[in-house]
Design a binder for these strands. Sequence first.
DNA 1: CACGATTAAATCGGACACGATATAAATCAA
DNA 2: TTGATTTATATCGTGTCCGATTTAATCGTG
Lengths: 167, 167
Amino acid sequence: MPTQTTRTPDMSVRVSSEVPNEVRKLSNFLCFAIYSANLAFGRAYKPILDKLGLTYTQYVAMVALTEQDDQTVGALGEKLFLESNTLTPILKKLESIGYIRRQRDPADERQVRVSLTPVGRALLDTEPAGSLVDATGLGEDFATVQQSVTRLRDNLLRSTQSHPGKK
Amino acid sequence: MPTQTTRTPDMSVRVSSEVPNEVRKLSNFLCFAIYSANLAFGRAYKPILDKLGLTYTQYVAMVALTEQDDQTVGALGEKLFLESNTLTPILKKLESIGYIRRQRDPADERQVRVSLTPVGRALLDTEPAGSLVDATGLGEDFATVQQSVTRLRDNLLRSTQSHPGKK
DNA sequence: CACGATTAAATCGGACACGATATAAATCAA
DNA sequence: TTGATTTATATCGTGTCCGATTTAATCGTG
């Protein structure tokens, strides 16, 4: 399942129905590396985000708004790789805290435009700068890994796009 | 917050309280690359896992059991980077489906030992082998990325360990 | 032995992520 | 213009993930 191969997992081409056990180890799964690294990031950020009173998803939503303010829910979702079912409750929460505004677009009442309030913008401007002072430990490989993982993500989404599961 | 720097994000050393906007872009965040790649993996796997009738977490739990059967909840959690609060409901679910067994260790009644049933083992043995036939698109970089992300995870967890947030 | 401390799971509540569906507005076609 | 279709959000139910707490068993020291 996790795209594994005799060569190396997560790019399998095997066809037989027997899965050799030496291959199917979690430590060989790229998906599991990503999955567990995501858990690890969440835990590393938690104490910092707690001080801001934000969850990780709330935080990245606000960062996306600093890049481009007054976006629709859909446009924001494209940047965050989330849809309105996930985003709407989060945005409502941020609105209730007073960090963002949500208002129907008068030109197209189906759309909701989201923008930072001064308070919200101020929060990010005074944001904990040197947080996680290189807890990644990646050193000079940092940029390379960042790019590779981004490419991985884009490739996966592309392939998911072309094989739209069911329906 | 997301460990970003003038150099490159997620290893910041900045001290001023003003955060320059060129730096704080989601596309520069390693944490966001990991976060979104994890979402992408989940979506790529969903159609395959749906056929197995398993969620991703259920699946990796079973894989961990094929590596080492009859583990305690705690031991399994160490391998999955999860604790009993997350694991217990998942294991109960897998038990109700009939893929695993959960039984108190007679030698230490505090512990619950988890093992695969024949049905559960059979499910993984006939598992979709060539799934995700290199949807990663990483080619020869695959192994390198896998190792880097694993190292990243371990570094993050180590640093979280030493800075235990709040009590 | 006794009883307070530690340990292993489990439980509970809050927040995401997501499939499926609903609602309402805009668009398109007859 | 009307009515069907499409589009943008929102709602709902399920399944994680996690902090905090609970329960029960074991351990440690007197």
